[in-house]
Amino acid sequence: MSDAPPLRKIIHVDMDAFFASVEQRDHPELRGKPVAVGGSSRRGVVAAASYEARVFGVRSAMPSVTAARRCPDLIFVKSRFDVYREVSGQIRAIFQRFTDAIEPLSLDEAYLDVTQDKQGIGSAVKIAKAIRAAIREETGLTASAGVSYNKFIAKLASDQNKPDGLCVILPEQGPEFVASLPVKRFHGVGPKTNEKMARLGIQTGADLREKDVAWLTAHFGSWGEGLFRMARGIDHRPVRSSRIRKSLGGERTYGEDKWSEGDLREALDGIVEIVWDRIAERQVRGRTVTLKVKFADFRQITRARSIEHAVASREEFSAIGHSLLTDILPVENGVRLLGLTLGSLERDEQEAKAATPVQQAFAFD
């Protein structure tokens, strides 16, 4: 495998607690208070949480009753996705001032390739600073950004100094930056995979880097080569959009039937992670989420929910999936298979062309 990646200038922009921050912006009485976007009913699920709420352990996809128990002063507000989408459009317009190579992952998150930027600035750091300043001035919101030479490290970097932070990882710093991080920070490493890695003695990127491709493939199958590259800060993926499909989904069959709500929700979290990665990679949007459940006696059911707007984020996709799961709990029989699908897909209105890789030194400053 080639370890000489084409040098690119990639920025990953991630809005800070986007849905909740919009609500706090538009409702001054909510500022500085713990806020959850979503329903407060027994079957409700948190779609997003403010940083004040996160201090208490409130997170997206958490049942509302659990969130309220963890944070008795939590304020629930109804989602307003028409507003979130409008603000996302403002942010997208800011991106387009600098590049057409834009790969949105959701309403509040996107990759930008600024190897060849429209304004001829040449410095990815200066562009990231200008984007964050424009977002703050024009929307009243804050964004965090990661700047690096590939998508994998740029995404890790954007989370490094949240909220309202900027992190720059130069090409010569990439491998050691990855080595210093816990593997649970790596894109695609969910709770179950993290537990498996811990059992195998892998806690950090440095631990992962000690393993060769053969060992990783033996333990993680076809993902082994990808993990080998991750551990070395290698990622050749361009910033791009993808073709449309009618639906995207994933499912898993379990060696042991799952009965408890905790086990089922944890299993669903793993499927959300897998499916949303596929959705983001193919740049599609959809309005219908379908949960598939197969029981130990091979009886199979599906539950679906359609909404008026396209599912806006991983958090919303997860929240809907968990709400559908809530509808069938408690289960009277063990569950052997879970699946989740996003349907009623639409093509992104504007496809971003990947910038041509350029072998050049970075002009970060």
Rank of each mutant, 00 (worst) to 15 (best):
H12W: 00
V13T: 10
D14F: 09
D14Q: 04
D14L: 04
M15R: 00
M15N: 01
D16L: 02
D16M: 03
F18M: 00
F18D: 02
A20F: 11
E23G: 00
E23L: 01
E23S: 01
E23V: 04
R25M: 07
D26Q: 02
D26R: 00
P28D: 05
P28N: 03
E29D: 08
L30R: 00
L30N: 01
R31T: 04
R31K: 04
R31F: 04
G32M: 02
G32H: 01
K33A: 02
K33I: 03
P34G: 06
V35G: 03
A36V: 05
A36Y: 07
A36W: 08
V37I: 04
V37L: 06
G38E: 09
G39S: 07
G39K: 00
S40H: 06
S40Y: 08
V45W: 05
V45Y: 06
A47C: 13
A47S: 14
A48G: 12
S50V: 13
E52S: 11
A53P: 11
A53E: 15
A53Q: 15
A53W: 15
V55N: 12
F56A: 07
G57E: 12
V58D: 02
R59A: 15
M62T: 08
M62E: 07
M62F: 12
P63L: 12
S64I: 14
S64M: 08
S64D: 12
V65E: 15
V65G: 12
V65F: 15
V65N: 14
V65W: 14
A67Q: 08
A68S: 14
R69A: 14
R70Q: 12
C71K: 09
C71A: 15
P72L: 12
P72H: 07
K78G: 14
K78S: 11
S79Y: 09
V83K: 10
V83D: 13
V83E: 13
R85A: 12
R85G: 10
E86R: 11
E86A: 13
V87D: 11
V87S: 15
Q90Y: 15
I91Y: 09
I91A: 09
R92D: 11
A93E: 15
A93R: 15
I94Q: 10
I94W: 11
F95Q: 04
F95H: 03
R97E: 14
R97V: 07
D100T: 07
I102D: 12
E103M: 09
P104E: 08
S106V: 12
L107A: 01
D108L: 03
D108Y: 09
D108I: 04
E109H: 05
A110G: 04
A110I: 06
